[in-house]
Each structure stands twice: as C-alpha cells, then as structure tokens.
Amino acid sequence: MLYIKCPYCGLRAQKEFSYGGDATVKRPNINEEVSSEDWDNFVYMRKSPRGKHIELWQHIAGCRQWIKVQRDTATHEIFQTAKVTEEIR
C-alpha cells in the first residue's frame, strides 16, 4: 500500500485516496475555440511514461483535496507531492 503525503493532512495510507491519472493534461479553456485534434488529445491522450509520472490523487477519505504526486511508475517510489496549484518539476 502506497504511503502518500497529503500536503494538507500529512502522510496517509493509499486507501484514503482515489486516483486521478495524468496531472499534466490541461483542459482547453472554457468558451474558447479549440481544434478537434486538440480536444481529442485532451480527452483521450495520456502521458504514461515508465519512470517519473506526475499524477492526480484525491484525498477522498480525508480533506477531499485533489493533489499532485510525482511517482516512479516502475518502482512506485514517490518523490514529491504538492497542492494542485503548486508546480512539480
């Protein structure tokens, strides 16, 4: 079971969280024109690297905040967690 540091609540067991996938997906702005290609990429294309992956989790059984987690998809090691408003690099 992963051990995820919620930036609001501290280290918590994975079962308190739900997963949200690739955090680098950026939704096209509301009320702005977008090409179908860009739109389809937003809906269906995901980064799925072997190695460092920035992803979303939601602390559903805690503060209910969505957070960013940088995790290695090969070893599951977590390098960094952050609020969604913060950058992970």
Partner: peptide
C-alpha cells in the same frame, strides 16, 4: 491496482 504502473508487482490491499 489502480494507478499507472510498469512494476510487475502490486500491493496487498
């Protein structure tokens, strides 16, 4: 297991 992974191992939960 419910998160992106290339590890051919999972967790007990």
């Amino acid at each position: 297991d419910g998160y992106n992974s290339y590890a051919q191992r999972g967790n007990l939960p």
